[in-house]
Nucleic acid binder design. Structure first.
Length: 419
RNA sequence: GUGGGUGUAGCCUAGUGGUUAAGGCGCCAGGUUGUGGCCCUGGAGAUCGAGGGUUCGAAUCCCUCCACUCACCCCA
């Protein structure tokens, strides 16, 4: 028997209400904030991801689904959402549009990782990107959108963490300071941190090992090393967020895993520990578009994992609206009546009444049992007698009351009953 | 990639060396030759994760593999 590949899963009908709920909120909110939807291909050139995410990162080193197609092209399944949007921005000359260009997406992301709660090899991310403006007000808008998104979904007890990790000008000095600080404490570090010191020093700061936390707590802070421009940007952003009433907390130990971030980074976290500790996050990437071959174009974005959101909705007991289902079941008795039932079901659908029609050869009893199991509110029954008189039976499944009426009357009844 | 836990019908569970692997939920059908839910009766559905080994005999013990799951790394 075939099974869904490791780390993938079927989104079954009973799960779809959550998905519809979350995606619908995302779409509504993006429209409210003036973001337009973009859908990019499921795969891109390998280089787009390896160059943007960073050659030294785990995603590029071991987590990408890369393959060669029959034309010899090195292609990679979408490993994250931002780079493809930037590629599309460049490819379609969006710098000629009024800036910033504001785009959003809901799309599957593919990473070859060991699956665990809230982490999958194929998962969906909702993300938005605002390209072409460096104003801190834009940062504030993106963060506000992200925060409102989670709040409007009904999630509670979230924290919004904020930091600035500087730019091309000021970061090198900070990194050097950080490295030399950590070099003095190297014997206290965990094994992972010893390699981080060489490969990705920023990540030293968010190690969860107790012995490393102590070192990280008194480590130099990136916000103390910002150049005047970054300092002003960060301070104005905090001002906006305060004015918007967003409950952010500056965390000097917040860094992000992808190389392209500059200045603003932020994360939204639920209470829970472990793999799903980040519900969503984002930041500025002012150098990414020029690195991809475009003119210098500042930008900021945000992304969140749909599965993690749904996990947290369930954990917090948020109820989501049920998806609409047919409330009318059309049953029949006899071959001739079956043909009439097929016609009647179609006729009801033509006027917008959602129905399930019995098919095959089942007893009326079985048909009604099915109607009951499908939670139909009404059953319409057609039999030989009804065909003779041109009428049908309308049965109210809740009260068991039924009446024999014409099809015209049936339409009226159902229309008023179903609203 | 590292470490732990778990694998018995669609789902939940019993069975820890001995006849045809048991029960519940769900599904199907009958009890009403045109009427659902409750009840009663019956039925279908399991190569006991896979392969190998020990044994007269394995769901049960041993080995290997696989899958699921949780955590780490990393990330949404």
């Amino acid at each position: 028997m075939y099974r869904a590949p490791r780390g993938t899963s079927d989104i079954l009908p009973q799960e779809q209400a959550y998905w519809r709920y979350v995606e619908h909120r995302a779409v509504r909110l993006c429209e409210l904030y003036g973001y337009q939807r973009i859908d990019t291909p499921a795969f891109e050139d390998l280089g787009l991801f390896s160059r943007s995410i960073g050659e030294g990162t785990d995603i590029v080193e071991k987590e990408m689904y890369t393959f060669e197609d029959k034309g010899g092209n090195q292609l990679t399944l979408r490993a994250e959402g931002t780079a493809p949007v930037c590629r599309a921005y460049l490819e379609h000359g969006m710098h000629n549009l009024p800036q910033p260009v504001k785009l959003y997406y809901v799309a599957p992301i593919f990473r070859y990782e060991r699956p665990q709660a809230g982490r999958y090899r194929e998962h969906y991310q909702f993300g938005c990107e605002a390209l072409g403006d460096s104003a801190p007000a834009l940062d504030a808008e993106v963060i506000d959108l992200a925060w409102q998104f989670f709040i409007s979904l009904g999630l509670r007890r979230l924290t919004l963490k904020l930091n600035s990790i500087g730019c091309r000008q000021c970061r090198p000095e900070y990194l050097a300071t950080l490295k030399s600080y950590y070099s003095g404490h190297i014997q206290k570090l965990c094994r992972d941190c010893k390699t981080r010191l060489k490969r990705n020093p920023l990540r030293l700061l968010d190690c969860k090992q107790p012995q490393c936390q102590a070192v990280a707590d008194s480590a130099p802070k990136s916000s103390d090393y910002l150049c005047p421009d970054c300092e002003e940007h960060f301070s104005r952003l905090r001002g906006y967020l305060e004015r918007l009433g967003l409950p952010f907390e500056v965390s000097h130990r917040l860094v992000r895993g992808l190389d392209y971030y500059t200045r603003t980074v932020f994360e939204i976290q639920p209470e829970s520990e472990g793999a799903q500790s980040t519900l969503g996050g984002g930041g500025r990437y002012d150098d990414l578009i020029s690195e991809l071959g475009g003119r210098p174009t500042p930008a900021i974005g945000f992304a969140t994992g749909m599965e993690r959101i749904i996990l947290n909705l369930k954990k917090q007991g948020v109820t989501v609206p049920a998806l609409p289902r047919p409330r009318v079941f059309v049953a029949y008795v006899g071959d001739e009546a079956r043909d009439e039932a097929v016609k009647l079901a179609a006729r009801l659908r033509r006027v917008g009444i959602s129905v399930i029609g019995a098919v095959g050869d089942k007893s009326l009893k079985a048909q009604l049992r099915q109607a009951n199991n499908l939670a139909a509110s009404y059953a319409v029954i057609i039999g030989d007698e009804e065909i003779k008189t041109g009428k049908v039976v309308l049965r109210d499944m809740a009260t068991s009351e039924q009446e024999t009426i014409t099809v015209t009357q049936l339409l009226e009844r159902l229309r008023s009953a179903l609203g």
